[in-house]
Structures are given as C-alpha cells and as structure tokens.
Design a protein around this nucleic acid. Structure first.
Length: 92
DNA sequence: CAAACTATTCAGC
DNA sequence: GCTGAATAGTTTG
C-alpha cells in the first residue's frame, strides 16, 4: 500500500453513484495531476476492489479504459448504477 | 536501487 | 480517426 494509492482509493470511493470521473481527475484529486497512468496501475492492482468502484473511473474520452471483469461488465455496472440513481430520485 | 509495465493523455498526420 | 511519444507511480528482481 502506497500513500498515493491510499489517496486514490479515498477519492474514488467518494465518487457518487451514476457519476464517472476521468483518471486525470482522480490523479489530480489524489495530489498528482499527471499521474493518471499511476492511477490506472493502482486500480489494476487494487488490493480492495470491493471498496474501490473502479468501474466509475473512465478515460477522459468517457470511454472505459479497461476492467478486470471486462469492459462490457463495466458499462453494465455504470448503467445499473444509473438505474439505481433513477430509482433513488424517483423514490418516495 | 533499477528496469519494465500500465485500466492514459496529448500531439501530429 | 489512428499512430507515436511522454509522464508518473507501482511492482518485481
């Protein structure tokens, strides 16, 4: 576990549902605006994939970079979360 | 400590 | 739209 990784985990875990941020954004929030590659490397080796919604982190092009479970699944998760947000907004 | 790798991003054609 | 190069940090030997 490295300090930068911890920072990245904290920031990413703070991303709300249905919200996608770019690697650059996360890197900047982590404290290293130019370490977007490092963010990807960390998320790839993330020791806690369950507390780290890495599927909410996408490229600056809004195109999912990659996913251990498959890019398709990542998109599916995003769509699912979108549905959850909709449900929460519609919830009464 | 040094080398290699990476889920990225920017610039050029 | 696609290819090539650069940056910053992690991981492994």
């Amino acid at each position: 576990m490295t300090p930068f990784a911890g920072r990245v985990y904290g920031v990413v875990s703070k991303i709300p549902l249905g919200r996608v941020r770019s690697y650059k954004w996360v890197a900047q929030k982590a404290g290293s605006p130019g370490a977007y590659r490092a963010v990807g490397t960390i998320l790839k080796n993330n020791p806690y994939p369950l507390i780290i919604p890495c599927h909410r982190v996408v490229k600056n092009d809004l195109n999912p970079g990659g996913y251990v479970l498959g890019i398709k699944n990542k998109k599916m998760l995003l769509d699912l979360e979108k549905g959850i947000v909709k449900c929460l907004a519609n919830k009464k």
